[in-house]
Each structure stands twice: as C-alpha cells, then as structure tokens.
Design a protein around this nucleic acid. Structure first.
Length: 442
DNA sequence: TCTGGGGTCCTAGGACCC
DNA sequence: TCTGGGGTCCTAGGACCC
C-alpha cells in the first residue's frame, strides 16, 4: 500500500455490448446480450438495459432469453472489433503513464506515479476526468469506470463502486473505511467456494474477515490463499503494476451442443483443436513441452491428462499425436460434453530443427504485394488528428484519420451502416483498413 | 436456470536424485 | 540393511478471474 492514491483501475462499462451499440445504432437503448448464442452458451456481457431484467455475465443464454422481452438482441462476440477498441484505450492510457497493465480486453491498471503525475487526491481526480473524456471521444462513446487508490486492490474495488461511467478516488487513510463494509465476495480471490466457507464461519463482510486471526485462515485455506486473504482484508497489498507477463499456456476447447461418445468424431475435433493451438503458438513465437487434454462429462466433472515431452514443439502433427494418445486413456462411453487441448511449459522458440537457428536466419521476404488501395499514405506519427485525411473504406463508407501514432492509425467512419461513425484503430499498414468485420447478427 | 472459453495460480502426492 | 530429509519435476484437480 502506497502513501498516495497513485494506482488507477479502468474498467470499460459492459464493453462488448456497448461496442455493439456504438457500431449498430438500432441497438441503442435496447437490451443487448453478447455471448454464446447456441443451446449451451452463456452471457459474456449484458448491456445495462438487459441488466435491468436481471441478466448477468456467466448466466446461461437460455435463461437470459427467458428473462428478456421481445426486441432484445443476441449477438455473437466480435473479438476483433473489441480488440481494436481495446487498443485505442490502452494506447491512450500509455500516454498517461509508461506503466500500464492490461488485465483483460476491457480492463487495465495504470501506475500514475510512474507517469510523473501529482498524486494528491484533487489532482488525480482531475486527471481521471480528462482520461475518461478522452476515452469516450476516441472510442466513439464507450465509457469506462475509474477507481484510484493506494493499491491495486483498492483501485479495483473503487472502480466498481460507481458504475457505469463512474469515478471514485479513495484517499490515503480511507482504505479500511471503504473496504470493511463490503461483502467478502468483492475481494479478488473470493469466489463461490471461499465465500461459502467464510459464510459458515460467520464471515460476511471484509471487516468480519479482517477481525479473524491469521491461523484460522491458514487452517481453512492453506498457506497462499490464507495469507492472501488476511492481507487483503487489511488493505495490505503491494503488488506492482506489471506491463507485460509471459504467456504460460495456450489452449483451445469446445463444448458440444450435445454430448459426443463417438471416438472418430472426438478424434477429428481433437485435430482441429490442436491445429488452433499450434497456429496460436506459432503466431506468438512459442512452443511447449507439455500437452494436456481436457474432458468434461455430462455431470460437469472435468478431468485432464497430460504428457511432457523432452523437446518443446509447435508442430500441429506432434501436438495432435500426443493429444490422441492421451484421449485414448479417457473413458468416453457415456459421451463428452467438452473436449480441450492445451500446451504448456512454454519456451520462446521451436526446438525441432524445423527453423533456422536464431541469428542465421535470412531476413523475412517482403510480404506479398496487394493491389494498391486507393488510399493516401497514413500520416506520420504526431500528425494532428484534426487535420486528418480522407480514407476510403469498402464497407463502412468514407472515413477519416482521427489520430495516429506508434504505427497505428485511428479512423472514424461515417456511412449508412454506422452513423455517426465508430472510431477504429488500425496498424498503419493494416490491410484491414479495407475489410469489414463479419456480420454477427443472429 | 444448468452452467463458454481463455487463462492464472495453488496444492498434494509420487518419482527420482543426492 | 535400514532409513533421513531436501529439492526438483511431473501429474491431476480445483478455485478463481474476465
């Protein structure tokens, strides 16, 4: 815990749903649910209109449909669109401080002290107001809620106190007053299982938890979780803001619409999952030694089987063969609800001798040439966005450069599909400047 | 109401080595 | 011949997060 409120947490409000409402004006003001549309799907994000009907994240989609009136929209996620908005926001935050830790596509911590800001409460409050306004402008109206405090814990809890479009600053010395009345479930790391054990011990609020001895928590929850809870309940949190983390595993899984017992079908699924994992490993320049197969039964019990190789691999064939051997040891007579493949024990480069040793590689050949688009070259970094140039776009109609920097171009589109025009960010040389998102209407 | 998909971290037991 | 303790790696499962 720091002496100043210098850690900020930003959480975009119902990000997936509000991006959909931004891009599709007909959805504005209506309940919008983004998530798995099929039988076994769940809600990823519900718009605030949908939340008034009690629809929440992680709720089965079937239940959401039951609760919502006619006229509600059910959409499959368009992750590429969300990532573009996420990049716009993260780039903005990096202008505030070099220490930005994206937690997910719609959430980040920012170390304001590392950005050289005055971290007195009035100053950070003003700073946050400005950041919120810039985010809303740059994203075409997607809002975020901000919390600022002396630790990650306090900042995160603060951002949740006033949603949507909120701003809460917890001044130094106010941490315990803020935390202690809240239910323990607000603490990072307290899920359903921990909450139930705490409830049995008569612990409902974070204040109740702070009143308990460490030995009790150690006995109930073990070393790591016990000490973690003990400290967090006292607002004792010195975790730094870490901009980048190494990837530890890459996996793909699929829940079937009905359980599958046919080993031929499962084998084909396994091949596809292994392919997806291998593709993503290669894109990230990673390979791994441990292959894991995950299976879930009708009753939701889940098992894993893993095998560790001598050498790391990113070869689809190698991963598939290892996965098939593991699947052979799994009982599928009553069918599987879910099948998954993962690779872990990662290292940075493939060791299979399929690639030149680092350092002796030929330079990459130039990318295949594309038909030259009718497009002026993107402005150099630093160009004033107000003077932006026109950029033609196949599907969204004309757009103009809204901002540029760090090899990225932000474009605001105006067209029949999206008046008054969303803002999107592209890499300066991104051919997606001429590609539309696939439609996701259901 | 019947539970997605992508991750992270922790625990516990067994094998193996010194 | 019997027995120790520590360290590391691997496997499996579980809780949790967004």
């Amino acid at each position: 815990m720091r002496r100043e409120a210098s850690i900020m947490h930003l959480d975009l409000d119902a990000a997936f749903a509000s991006i959909e409402q931004r891009d599709k004006p007909s959805l504005r003001g209506r309940p919008v649910v983004v998530g798995g549309i099929a039988g076994r799907g769940v809600v990823a994000t519900a718009s605030y209109e949908a939340r008034t009907y009690g629809v929440r994240s992680a709720m089965p989609m079937a239940e959401a449909r039951r609760r919502l009136p006619a006229g509600a929209a059910y959409l499959v996620p368009r992750f590429e669109a969300y990532k573009r908005t996420s990049h716009v926001v993260m780039d903005l935050l990096r202008e505030v401080s070099p220490l930005v830790e994206p937690v997910s596509i719609d959430e980040a911590f920012v170390d304001l002290a590392a950005g050289g800001h005055d971290c007195a409460v009035p100053a950070v409050t003003e700073l946050a107001r400005g950041i919120k306004a810039r985010i809303a402008a740059a994203t075409g109206g997607v809002t975020g809620s901000v919390g600022i405090g002396s630790s990650k814990l306090v900042a995160k809890i603060a951002s949740d106190l006033d949603k949507p479009d909120g701003l809460t600053v917890v001044g130094p010395g106010r941490e315990l007053d803020t935390l202690h009345p809240l239910p323990v479930t607000k603490l990072w790391g307290v899920g359903p299982a921990t909450a139930e054990r705490l409830r049995q011990a008569g612990i409902r609020t974070i204040g109740d938890l702070a009143a308990r001895e460490l030995v009790d928590l150690l006995a109930w929850f073990g070393q790591a979780h016990g000490t973690g809870l003990h400290r967090l309940a006292r607002a004792d949190d010195d975790r730094p803001v870490v901009p980048e983390r190494d990837t530890k595993s890459v996996s793909a899984e699929e829940t079937f619409s009905t359980d599958v017992a046919d080993r031929t079908v499962l084998g084909r699924e396994l091949d596809q999952l292994a392919d997806r994992v291998a593709t993503r490993l290669r894109a990230a320049g990673l390979s791994g030694r441990t292959v894991t197969v995950k299976a879930r039964y009708f009753d939701f019990t889940t098992i894993t089987r893993s095998a560790t190789r001598e050498q790391p691999t990113d070869e689809p064939r190698t991963i598939t063969e290892a996965a098939r051997r593991l699947l052979a040891d799994i009982d599928v007579t009553n069918g599987l609800r879910l099948l998954g493949v993962g690779v872990s024990a990662l290292s940075e480069f493939a060791q299979d001798g399929l690639f030149p040793v680092i350092g002796t590689a030929e330079p990459d050949p130039p990318p295949p040439s594309r038909p030259a688009p009718e497009q002026p070259p993107p402005p150099p970094p630093g160009t004033d966005w107000r003077t932006g140039q026109d950029i033609r776009h196949d599907d969204h109609g004309p757009g103009w450069v809204w901002g540029a920097g760090l090899g990225r171009v932000t474009v605001r589109f105006e067209g029949p599909l999206t008046p008054p025009g969303p803002v999107r960010t592209f890499k300066a040389d991104d051919p997606a400047l001429h590609r539309a998102d696939p439609p996701n209407w259901i």
